[in-house]
């Protein structure tokens, strides 16, 4: 399982190695709409981690929630 992960990391970082500065198509001063709290999917970490906990303990799937997953000892 580690080999595919390492390969993906290499693929993901390759573009960075070959690129200089990228001209942003959304300028910093154009990001006001993105900085609104309603655009923050982890606006309240105390809540999002609790909700993740509720699901991980009662379902067979876990991970890729974008937050921190320590895994689940769901025995």
């Amino acid at each position: 399982m580690r080999r595919p992960l390492a390969a993906l990391l290499i693929v993901l970082t390759l573009p960075v190695a070959g690129c200089g500065r990228v001209e942003p198509w959304v300028k910093p001063y154009e990001r006001a709409q993105l900085e609104d709290p309603i655009m923050d999917r982890d606006r309240d970490p105390v809540s999002s981690s609790y909700v993740r906990h509720v699901y991980e303990t009662r379902e067979g799937a876990r991970g890729a929630t974008g937050g921190v997953s320590g895994g689940c000892g769901c025995n």
Partner: peptide
């Protein structure tokens, strides 16, 4: 069931 939830990730600001 037990899940570890207090791993205290940074909340990356958009800025």
């Amino acid at each position: 069931a037990i899940a570890t939830l207090l791993l205290l990730a940074p909340a990356p600001p958009i800025a």
